[in-house]
Computed example of a mutant assay.
Amino acid sequence: MSGTALAQPVEKSRRRWFDLRLLVAALAIAGAVGYLMYTGLQSTAASYFVTVSELQQRAAEVEGKRVRVGGDVVPGSIRMGGPGEPIHFEITDGTSRLAVVYEGVLPDIFADGRHVIVEGTFRSSQPIHADTLLTQCPSRFESTPGQ
């Protein structure tokens, strides 16, 4: 009888230990999911960009800071450098223009008139030195003129 009396407390302590491990694992999973949701929301908020005019209006406020600005590539403004040299171009929102210097691999669809988003450090009265260049893909579902 003493063997059964000892087995019950040991079994209960094992069950508590197992329940505690499940609780810790559930909390860890919930924490990981919460962190992923938080970082996902942050990157969604970071996808916002300002127009060239908005950037110029807030120039003093964003001086020396990283910015994300969108606009259309000004036709005829693209100046390609040689291998290893930066690409110079301008973007516009229809009202204002901004000079951009980009060193990196150009997207295949980068061209005059294409809508782009550039990221880089802003310094007034200097071209923005972009380290990221995103181009908007034209929709395949747009109708052709006259249809």
Score class of each variant (00 low, 15 high):
129 H>G: 12
43 S>A: 13
13 S>H: 12
117 I>P: 00
116 V>N: 00
107 P>D: 05
17 W>E: 15
8 Q>V: 11
29 I>G: 10
67 V>R: 00
64 G>C: 03
8 Q>C: 04
21 R>Y: 10
59 A>D: 04
56 Q>Y: 02
121 T>P: 02
93 D>I: 04
147 Q>V: 12
17 W>T: 14
42 Q>T: 06
15 R>G: 13
110 F>H: 08
7 A>H: 06
37 M>L: 15
109 I>V: 13
132 T>G: 04
26 A>G: 07
65 K>C: 03
53 S>E: 13
116 V>G: 02
91 I>R: 05
65 K>Q: 10
20 L>T: 15
90 E>N: 08
131 D>A: 01
121 T>K: 08
113 G>N: 09
104 G>L: 03
79 R>K: 14
24 V>Q: 10
74 V>D: 10
72 D>Y: 12
31 G>V: 11
44 T>N: 13
3 G>R: 12
24 V>K: 05
71 G>D: 05
98 L>C: 01
139 S>Y: 12
59 A>T: 02
16 R>H: 10
53 S>F: 05
85 E>F: 07
130 A>G: 04
69 V>R: 02
69 V>T: 01
82 G>A: 15
20 L>G: 14
48 Y>G: 12
21 R>W: 11
121 T>G: 07
65 K>E: 11
85 E>P: 05
87 I>M: 08
89 F>M: 03
